[in-house]
Each structure stands twice: as structure tokens, then as C-alpha cells.
């Protein structure tokens, strides 16, 4: 069966603002290479996680797929239809109904002047799906589904009267009321208290089952990814370094960066924590305006050789369905 979303060599470069003097001297325009050629596919009905540190381009990828940004090059194919450069007008007609996004910060993603009921009903109005009583019934039903009960109570509240977890539930309800096929969740739990996180994750999984959803789950937290995802791609500086099922990637990581990320997860038991072998990486991610030559990870990689500084490794299949971009795995 054809995957729901196919992403091919996707790139997004943001131009860097130049100062007045630079413009006069007409120096070359520079770009932040936020996403620099990534390829993956999301299968219908799965949870695909995209993991990496801040600044690795995972949120940009999310925005590209929901087309809040237009790709610089590459291809995004949704359900067999190329939407890479589809204009906003035509996106509004069909794509925006089928692909929805849940943002990271529920304090910022809800309009402070719109009541919960209005906010959730608004997508129905935009697409002319329901009106009047039917619309209200759908909203109340959705509120019940996301666990905001009694729904009549929440219907007339303003976002500032709700807690972070409740707000995120409203954002989820707003995204799902259109019955989308793909839901892009951009770190939906990272702005919430730890105690609320697992509730939201459970809710997302329940709704996925109930409404037959496919998720693209963006996260920097590998533990969350392990819990929720079927497959995972690890990104570093705009590139995918490792891709595969969560079991393969997280239980048997092959790329040194994935190993380092995994060993950075704190373990509550100090004895276990002492005995584990840790892969440490020095420094911080380099500047994406001017990424390192060859393998982007080589200045921080414990295994780096001369080859790594010259030639960029390709993403290769090392075992069925498990892809790694590293010269050391041949």
C-alpha cells in the first residue's frame, strides 16, 4: 500500500538578513539550512516520530508538511498528490481539512479572545461542515472525547481560565474535529507538567485508535517517542542520521549521535546509571548557516575518521527497515 505521506529530498533554507553595509558590499546572501535534504515516508495508521535536539529542523519539517512553510526544494506527496508547491487557495479547499497540527505551546496556540466552544467550532464554520445545533452538538461531543467533562461547562470558558493540560486538550479537540487523516503533533507535551504528559499521550493514542489517525510526532524526548511511536527518525542539523522502527533504533542504536542521545536520558536508579556505558559528545551543534563539511556530526563524533570530514555519508539500509547514515557501518 502506498504510504500516506512521502517526503523526498526535502529542503528548507531561510535567508539570513544582511546588514546595510553587507548589502552595499553586495556580499553573497547566506542561508540557514534548517532542513537539508531529508527523505522518509509515513505509513497510513502509524505513529512516526521525528526526534532531535532544538535547532535540528524537526519543527521546520512539521511546518513544511502542514504547509505553513513552502519548501525550498524536494517533494512532499500526500496520498499520491504532490503538495510541495500547491498554492494556499487550493490547500484550503482540501488539504487543510485532512492534515492538522497540534502546537507545542497551548498557551500561545489558542486565541485569547475566543471561547473554547467558538475555537473548536471555528474549523467547522471555515469549511462549512455544520451549523447551529448540529455544530454545537459536534463540539460538545469532541469536548467529551478529549476528556473535558462536563462539556457544557468548558464550552463557555476562555483559554485563560484553563490549565495548560486543559488548553492542550482544547487544541487537540480543535485539530481533530475536522476528522483529519494526518495529525502533526509538534512536541505537544513539552510545555506541560510532567504529571500531565502521560495523560495527554494516552489521550492521543486513544483518539488515534478511535478516529483512525496517522501521527507525525515531533519530539526531543526519546522516552516519549519510545512510548508513542512505531517508527522513528533521528535528525541532526537538518539531516536524518538514523531511521527505523523504535525497537531497532532505540534498543539497538547504530549511529553515534543516537547512542549519545540515548545515554543522555537520565536513569532514576543510581547503580544502573553508574554501570551503563555512556557515549558523550563534546560541544554544541554547529551553526546551520555554515555546517561542517562531510558528515555534519564529525567534529563531535567519537568515531570520526579523515573520510568523515570529506565525504557525506548516505542513509543506507543496514538491516531491513533500519537506515543509518554513518561511514563506520559498512
Amino acid at each position: 500500500m502506498r504510504p500516506l505521506v512521502e517526503v523526498e529530498d526535502l529542503k528548507k533554507y531561510f535567508p539570513v538578513e544582511r546588514s546595510f553595509i553587507e548589502r552595499i558590499l553586495s556580499r553573497k546572501r547566506r542561508y540557514v539550512k534548517a532542513v537539508d535534504g531529508i527523505t522518509f515516508a509515513i505509513r497510513r495508521g502509524e505513529v512516526f516520530a521525528l526526534a532531535g535536539e532544538s535547532g535540528c529542523g524537526k519543527t521546520t519539517t512539521a511546518y513544511l508538511i502542514v504547509r505553513l512553510l513552502e519548501p525550498t526544494s524536494g517533494r512532499i506527496v500526500f496520498n499520491g498528490r504532490d503538495i510541495t508547491h500547491e498554492p494556499e487557495r487550493s490547500l484550503r479547499r482540501w488539504y487543510r481539512r485532512r492534515v492538522q497540527i497540534i502546537f507545542q505551546d497551548p498557551y500561545a496556540s489558542l486565541n485569547p479572545r475566543m471561547k473554547v466552544g467558538e475555537a473548536i467550532a471555528h474549523p467547522l464554520e471555515i469549511h462549512g461542515i455544520a451549523e447551529g445545533k448540529e455544530k454545537k452538538e459536534m463540539v460538545l461531543d469532541m469536548l467529551r472525547k478529549v476528556g473535558l467533562t462536563p462539556p457544557e461547562l468548558f464550552y463557555n470558558k476562555y483559554p485563560h481560565e484553563l490549565s495548560g493540560g486543559q488548553r492542550q486538550r482544547v487544541a487537540i479537540a480543535r485539530a481533530l474535529i475536522l476528522r483529519p487523516e494526518l495529525v502533526v503533533a509538534d512536541e505537544p507535551t513539552s510545555a506541560l507538567d510532567v504529571s500531565i504528559r502521560s495523560q495527554i499521550l494516552k489521550l492521543l493514542l486513544e483518539l488515534k485508535k478511535e478516529l483512525n489517525l496517522t501521527y507525525l510526532y515531533i519530539t526531543h524526548d526519546l522516552a516519549t517517542a519510545y512510548y508513542i511511536a512505531d517508527r522513528i527518525a533521528v535528525m541532526y542539523l537538518g539531516k536524518i542520521v538514523e531511521l527505523g522502527s523504535v525497537e531497532d533504533v532505540l534498543e539497538n542504536p547504530l549511529h553515534p549521535y543516537t547512542k549519545a542521545l540515548l545515554s543522555a536520558i537520565p536513569i532514576p536508579d543510581p547503580r544502573m546509571s553508574r554501570t551503563r556505558r555512556r557515549v558523550k559528545i563534546p560541544g554544541e551543534p554547529p551553526n546551520p548557516i555554515n555546517p561542517p563539511t562531510g558528515c555534519r556530526f564529525h567534529p563531535r563524533c567519537p568515531w570520526a575518521t579523515k573520510l568523515c570530514a570529506v565525504e557525506e555519508p548516505e542513509l543506507r539500509e543496514v538491516s531491513p527497515g533500519h537506515y543509518v547514515a554513518c561511514h563506520m557501518l559498512k
Binding site: R92, R96, L110, N111, P112, M114, H122, I126, L178
Partner: peptide, 22 residues
């Protein structure tokens, strides 16, 4: 620049709706 304006765009609202409601 607020996220809720981006959210409105993702919901499929046109420019006029975004301007008047958000």
C-alpha cells in the same frame, strides 16, 4: 507572529477571517 494566527492558517481560514477573528 503569535502561534494562534499560524493555527488559524493551518485550520484553513482565509486572510479575511484571520484578520477579523484572530
Amino acid at each position: 507572529e503569535n502561534l494562534y494566527v499560524k493555527a488559524a492558517q493551518a485550520l484553513g481560514a482565509d486572510v479575511l477571517t484571520i484578520l477579523t477573528k484572530y
